[in-house]
């Protein structure tokens, strides 16, 4: 098995406030890692350090064998290989759905425009929104926006996908569609790191569940291990609260 992401002793502080206090995590190829934990536990910050949207204070991050924190590393090349999906979608509102998906491949000359268009339409097909290709983002529902955002993140053919609370901003009836697309991706073998509060998704799709609290990874294991028999008291407490509503 190949290690896609390797993190060693990662720290991140905002001024005096240390939000990541030494994180170690390896993610294997095709693995789906779901990160759970209370708000402010550092899981989103950790996810955002993996494509350097946040600058870590210290530690090591290796993505596909490249040292992410080496100033000589071509960050843009690494980012092409890591798709990211945001809580608030962040679609480009001045571009159509199709243009949103095509932007990076055409700008970065990965494909000529007819080829990029064809691939973009295939991706929209994959998320079930081909017929919305010419719509503007403002005309879409939240769930549709997030599926377009997933298609856009896939357009550079990344080998790793990061999801930062992809369903938190959605109306409940929209959540299912987005999770279905993610599940589909997981089944196709995508390496995925997902921050979410959807415990059902974690149980069903995750190969490994990682529990964050107070800037540390407190517990990790298969969904069964973590959900059915948590060892850490913070994890137990958290799971009690979210599972027994």
């Amino acid at each position: 098995m190949t290690v896609k992401v390797s993190v060693k002793d990662l720290h991140k502080s905002y001024g005096d406030n240390e939000v990541l206090k030494g994180i170690n995590l390896d993610v294997q190829e095709n693995e789906v890692v779901v990160m759970i934990g209370p708000s402010g536990s550092g899981k989103s910050t950790f996810l955002r350090t993996l494509n350097k949207l946040e600058e870590p204070t210290s530690g090591e991050i290796t993505i596909n064998g490249s040292n992410l924190l080496d100033p000589k590393t071509n960050l843009n090349k690494i980012r092409e290989n890591i798709g990211m999906v945001f809580q608030h979608f962040n679609l480009f509102p001045h571009l159509t759905v199709l243009q949103n998906v095509m932007l990076a491949p055409t700008e970065l000359k990965k494909a000529d425009s007819s080829e990029a268009k064809k691939e973009a339409l295939d991706l929209l097909d994959q998320v079930g929104l081909r017929e919305k290709a010419d719509a503007m983002p403002a005309q879409l529902s939240g769930g549709q926006k997030q599926r377009v955002a997933i298609a856009r993140a896939l357009a550079m053919k990344p080998s790793i996908m990061l999801f930062d609370e992809p369903t938190s901003a959605l109306d409940p009836e929209m959540v299912g569609d987005v999770l279905a697309v993610m599940k589909d991706l997981a089944e196709k073998g995508m390496t995925m790191i997902v921050v979410t509060h959807e415990m059902g998704f974690a149980k069903q799709v995750a190969d490994r569940v990682v529990f964050f609290a107070d800037g540390y990874i407190r517990e990790q294991g298969t969904p069964q291990e973590v959900f059915d028999n948590p060892q850490d008291p913070r994890a137990k407490d958290f799971l009690d609260k979210v599972l027994n509503v």
Binding site: N51, L53, N76, K77, R79, E80, N81, I82, G83, M84, F86, N90, L91, F92, L103, A104, E107, L108, A149, R152, A153, A155, M156
Partner: peptide, 10 residues
């Protein structure tokens, strides 16, 4: 918007 654009490798 900037984060989304940069995360695509732009």
């Amino acid at each position: 918007q900037m984060e989304a654009a940069r995360s695509l490798g732009l």
